[in-house]
Design a protein around this nucleic acid. Structure first.
Lengths: 130, 130, 130, 130
DNA sequence: GTGGTCTAGACCACA
DNA sequence: GTGGTCTAGACCACA
């Protein structure tokens, strides 16, 4: 389930959007699946409907969902690909931090291990599901 | 020189602080070196003096500089080590992004190459200087 | 057949009404022809009966159909002419967009070709039918 | 100046965004020019600040402005090109309407004249300014 | 001062 | 019921 950390620096609406992206990638929200309604979700997450709607707008902008007034919001076909495309931009964030680490004299191996253990963790959780 | 991107998501004061950290690590600002005065720098960077002041406070907090009212601010002894220590916390940022990439199915090698090329770039610039 | 794009900006009821207008103009729905019943069509299009009802009201307003409670809805005599009359109002929409294009520096020829190719397409489909 | 028609079907925030696009294309808002602040404009237009901000978000999404918190919003370099790019999508709207007109038997010349007179009008207003 | 986020709640057209 | 828009107003970090 999508969860919110009120004290996080990242805005609530972005946490919601990111959460659903994760669910799409996991296969929990397949293409064509209907999103909870704005009102429903706002009750569930104890947030304002406007905040949920902003999250949905963000998901629309990312090509993840499509909203039909009076009908509901649905996962678009190709949503997972759209998310993966967006993800690539995050690689540049890694590169930026890595440059700082390099400059700070942190050994390259330490940075690489950071990535490796992150991937190992995520592989683990996949295996658990199997 | 320290530069500012006013449209970046990271606050200007943090950009300034990060910039001086980089200069310390490069050896451009050795221990004991005097920082430009708040006013001077605010003119140079075309920013609000309050912003520069906040950057200096941040550098103080990080153990990078020491400020003596009426005298000026100076690079502390051990500044580079203090920065390196702070850097380690950024590794967790890399880990967090890497986990998302893993989930999104971005191959581990792509993420690793991100780090590798960042380190290669920074090696290059060191060689140039030699 | 009338089709619905539930993510389109134009309301579903308008899509339905427009669809029947097209059928009238094509000759698929001649004067006096009976419209499908509201229930029947709502099942066929997988829409809410209220929506179909609203579409029929709209067609009535446009002078395209006439509804007799308990009997059914029928294409009026002169329906095609009524539609053509309504169409003219859509010309002002074209004009409005064209003004924006002009302002944006899009060459007039590009806009004109837009129209020309639309007419060519529709001529083609007429020929095919012949 | 940007004006608002409260009774128009197009949302207020979109009217505001469109208005500024027009100003950019006219040269009234050159690259780098500062937008009025959200609060300032909301007073000027007698709307809610949230509505103005939504308009600014839309302009950001279109690549027309960039906003720096605490500093202001500014016309991006290449804003006019970004707008022209967006414009092209409107050509498909013209095509869609033109197809309906063709089907309705409206002579092609009438539709073409629609475009021509729109371009003539806009040329006129350019001449007036000269 | 600036923009960004969020709450609380109203109203709308549409299904 | 659904999403979309808007108002009124608070609070925040940042400049």
């Amino acid at each position: 389930m999508v969860t919110i950390d009120k004290f996080s620096r990242t805005p609530v609406y972005e946490q919601i959007a990111d959460g659903f992206c994760r669910e799409v990638l996991c296969g929990l929200m397949p293409e064509g699946a209907q999103m909870p309604s704005v009102r429903e979700l706002s009750v569930l997450l104890a947030t304002n409907p406007n905040t949920v709607q902003k999250a949905y707008l963000e998901l629309d902008r990312r090509g993840v969902i499509s909203s039909a007034p009076g009908v509901g919001s649905f996962i678009r076909t190709g949503a997972a690909d759209a998310i993966r495309e967006n993800m690539k931009s995050r690689m540049s964030e890694i590169a930026a931090i890595a440059k700082e680490l390099a400059l700070a004299g942190i050994p390259e191996e330490e940075a690489l291990n950071c990535i490796r253990s992150a991937y190992r963790d995520s592989d683990q959780s996949k295996i658990k599901k199997e």
